[in-house]
Amino acid sequence: MKLAAVQLRATDDRTETIGRAGDLVDAAAGQGAGIVLLPELFAVPFVQPDPDPDYFELAERLDGPSNTMAADRSRRHGITVVSSVFEAGDVPGVYFNTACTYVAGELKSVYRKSHLPFSNGFPEKFYFRPGGTEPEVVHTGETGVGTIICYERHFPELSRIVALQGGSVLCVPVASASAPMREVFQLELKAHAVFNGLFVICANRVGREGVKDYFGMSAVYGPNGDVLAQASDNTDDVAVAEVDLELIASSRRRRPFLRDRRPELYDRLTAM
């Protein structure tokens, strides 16, 4: 099968941005991709360093224009599309950073970002309520897909949960621009792949937004930590990689980290 990461420049024109995103999903599907990942909150500019109450005007319901496009493309091409939206919750004044997984047009998972930063110019705690559930694995018919969101890649416990649930593909939509994070960006993603025996798809935005310059580097990683496909620098693009799902089982046999876990020794991780 093939996996794809969409790399996208967001503008103030939501309709135009969603249109370009849809074209990129079409392009990925045209290259045979069965799982396509969009960047974090792909349809709108991301948060700036100073909290801005006007930003809440960009929020949308789960059935808003961003997910409508994702569901349509998922249905049209018979593929899995992982979307990411600035969600206006059911309770007035409550908002989430949310990833939705569509399989052949059907909504299979809603995951709300549970770890929120207030550092390096990303004051997300001001905007979003943290989600309260662990990542879940969606079975697409070919494989199991789990999603964590951006800042959560710094917490290895979350990708391990995906692996323990039988996931083979980890999706990581991001909005990454800060210099400290760029230094370790691919290192972390490769580590998630190797430690858990997973394929990893990471989709970032690209281009200048306010004071931030998003660096792209959207890519697909193999369970050996290798970069299987990477988007072009500084432009809208899709990175599409053909993968062999049999590599998941073989990599976990050669590096049996899941077998050798000792969870009875790890109580301290949740007690402190």
Score class of each variant (00 low, 15 high):
residue 240 V to L: 08
residue 83 S to Y: 02
residue 240 V to T: 10
residue 233 D to I: 11
residue 25 V to W: 05
residue 200 V to L: 08
residue 26 D to G: 11
residue 31 Q to R: 11
residue 219 A to R: 11
residue 242 E to K: 13
residue 195 F to R: 14
residue 198 L to S: 05
residue 267 D to T: 08
residue 206 V to F: 05
residue 255 R to Q: 12
residue 160 R to W: 10
residue 130 P to M: 04
residue 212 K to N: 10
residue 172 V to G: 04
residue 210 G to L: 04
residue 44 V to G: 08
residue 133 T to W: 11
residue 23 D to T: 15
residue 190 K to T: 10
residue 206 V to H: 06
residue 166 G to M: 06
residue 202 C to R: 11
residue 36 V to E: 09
residue 71 A to W: 01
residue 228 L to N: 01
residue 62 L to W: 03
residue 187 L to E: 15
residue 54 D to V: 11
residue 147 T to H: 03
residue 14 R to M: 13
residue 203 A to W: 05
residue 129 R to G: 06
residue 242 E to A: 08
residue 167 G to D: 01
residue 211 V to N: 14
residue 75 R to S: 13
residue 28 A to P: 01
residue 215 F to N: 04
residue 25 V to F: 00
residue 126 F to K: 06
residue 183 E to P: 08
residue 197 G to S: 12
residue 36 V to F: 10
residue 174 V to F: 13
residue 39 P to A: 00
residue 199 F to G: 01
residue 160 R to F: 07
residue 114 S to Y: 00
residue 78 G to W: 07
residue 85 V to K: 04
residue 237 D to F: 08
residue 177 A to P: 09
residue 43 A to G: 15
residue 6 V to S: 06
residue 27 A to T: 10
residue 177 A to T: 10
residue 128 F to N: 05
residue 216 G to T: 04
residue 271 A to F: 02
residue 114 S to R: 12
residue 173 P to L: 02
residue 55 Y to N: 07
residue 190 K to A: 12
residue 3 L to W: 05
residue 239 A to W: 02
residue 70 A to Q: 02
residue 271 A to M: 13
residue 172 V to K: 02
residue 90 D to R: 03
residue 239 A to M: 07
residue 249 A to G: 09
residue 67 N to R: 01
residue 199 F to Y: 12
residue 256 P to Q: 00
residue 260 D to T: 09
residue 92 P to Y: 06
residue 115 H to Q: 10
residue 108 K to Y: 02
residue 251 S to R: 09
residue 105 G to S: 06
residue 79 I to Q: 00
residue 92 P to A: 12
residue 164 L to D: 15
residue 103 V to A: 02
residue 243 V to M: 02
residue 216 G to M: 11
residue 86 F to I: 04
residue 20 R to H: 11
residue 26 D to C: 07
residue 248 I to V: 11
residue 11 T to G: 06
residue 255 R to N: 15
